[in-house]
Every structure is written in C-alpha cells, then in structure tokens.
Amino acid sequence: MPEPTEKTTPGAKIAYLAGGAASTGLIAGLHARLLLFPPYRLFVLALIRMGFSGRSLVIAVPYLWLLAFFLAPFLIVLKISLAEVVIAQPPYTPLFVFIEDGFIAIQASLDNYLFLMEDSLYWKSYLSSLRIAFISTGLTLLIGYPIAYGMIRAPKRWRFALLMMVILPFWTSFLIRVYAWIGILKKEGLLNLALMQLGIISEPLTILNTDIAVYIGIVYSYLPFMVLPLYANLEKMDLSLLEAAADLGCRPIKAFWVVTVPLSVPGIVAGCFLVFIPALGEFVIPDLLGGSQTLMIGKTLWSEFFNNRDWPLSSAVAVILLLVLVIPIVLFQRMQERSARAEA
C-alpha cells in the first residue's frame, strides 16, 4: 500500500525500494510487503548491518519466517483489537491516521475490552471454558492413569506394541475422531441402540449436543496426551520400591497410594497441562458435539468472526484468551525446566 503520505517514513522507503527491485516472483513480492511490519523490518536492517555471513543467513531464514508469520500477525491482532468496526474493506478503523504535514494520530480505543466485560456472554464463555477444560482434564487423568499403569505392568515385549497403540490415534485425524462420536451418541445412535437392546434403558438418552458429549469428546481426543507422559514417568520408577513396601507388610493397594502415586506426580502434572491447555481453546469438539447452550471461548470467537464479522471484537476475545492461557503455560514451562534440571 504505497500511499504518498507513507513515503515519509523510512520503512515505506525500504518497502518501496525492495518492491521495485523485486516485483517479480512471489517470495520477493511477499518480502516487500512484509517490510511494512516493524519486527520484520528491524530484523532485516540488523541483518544487513551484521553483514551476510553464512551463519547469520542460516539463522535468518527460519527467524524471518517466524517473525513474519507468527509475531507480526499477533501484533496485528493486538492492533485491531484496539480498533473499531466499520463497514469497509478491511472492516476496521486504522490505528494510525496520517494527517497533513507528516503528523500521525493514534486512534486507539478500549471499547472492545469494555464491551467484553459488560456483556455477560463473554465472561460466561471464559468461565465455562475453564470449567469444561478443568473437568475433562480430571476425567482424562482418571481414565489415563490406569491405562499407563497397566502398560508398565505388562510384559516388556508388549510395550512397543502398546505404546504404538496409544500413539496411533494421535496421528489419525482429529476431526474424524470427533465425527465418529456423533454416530454413537445421537438419539438414534449406536450407544442408545445397544443400551435399549440390553434392556438397561427404555427411553433413548440425550447425550449429543450436551456438555456430557463435550467431556467425552475431549477425554477421547486428548487421552494420548495424558497417557504418554504418565507412561514415560512410571516406566522410570524403580519397581523394587514396591517390593520393599510389600516386604514391610504394605498391602498392594496401599503401596500404590503411598509409593507409586507420589512418585508419578511430575507425570500427572505434565499430562494435565497437556490436556488442559489445548482443551481451553478448543473449537471443533464443542461445535460438533456440544449444544447451543455449550459455551466455549473458541466457539464464541469463531461465531464472532464468521457470523457477526466483527473483526476488532474477535481480536479482543483472542487477546484475552491468550492472557488466560499464559498462566498455565508459564507454570508448565517452569515445571518442565525444573524437572530437566533435576535430571541433569
């Protein structure tokens, strides 16, 4: 967008030069447009100042890519969350307005964030996401722990096959695995059919389009994330500790609670974070399995963007979601570092 007013800034000049020199080729054209963004531009300038050594070029390629397509997009979200929605293309107000004489006015408003606090839909979505993620993490632990424990008790020659069987569903499509549950859980689905034939229930249960279906979907989809760290942790456990406990007269069940569970706490915590963090921002599961009253923030963001076309507001929802996620992510990072140091 080389508008005449922008040429006064040095960045626009670089973009203009690069654009002129490299008007051919997709990558070159992309590079020219990306130079409009401060982090990318600063990095390119630093690179030029350092000189093009082989080493800096190797670093530069993935670095530039991530700056351009990870950091810069995120800064744009931050910027647009401070804008207002307008009917135009693009549908938001610009943050910087170029006035005559080279002055720049900043047009930022916190209206979107204020709106998020006022409208109960949004904070209810955040709370409900936290609740659903929390409950499903607990359920995943309850189901995953016995599986991981069974795996380490199995004969050694089975372990590779068992491990493969846990990993394999993780590779198959997420969407397909969620879809598979629709046919099972719906009113005339296979679960109701089986239960009615067995005479356990006389009326079909309504499970699909409720929160229960969302719990089932999350537990099912993220079970490998829970089992794998638990298995990795339990495998390292010294089984002679259990023998010692038994020799000292401890019953197996008590030995499990007194010896095995405390030793596996790092695995439990790692597994819980690995389930909780992605479950919080989940979209596909609540959308396909949940009902209209299932509130999750990923779903709210999606409908705000695709149905209401309010880009600034959905950006603000994204920023807040990220702030909510930062706490568990930082905790997880700290814990991983501590256990890495303990092992070293």
């Binding site: 997009p73 979209f283 963001l301 979601l321």
Partner: peptide
C-alpha cells in the same frame, strides 16, 4: 500451545493487512 482459533485469526488479519 497457541489455540488454533488464535493462530488462524491472526494469520488471516495479517494476510488482509498485506493484501
């Protein structure tokens, strides 16, 4: 660890910004 909705939204806004 980034939720997919955020990655998707931010990339889309970026592509719009560089037209």
């Amino acid at each position: 660890v980034m939720p997919e909705v955020i990655t998707g939204l931010s990339l889309l806004l970026m592509f719009v910004a560089i037209s």
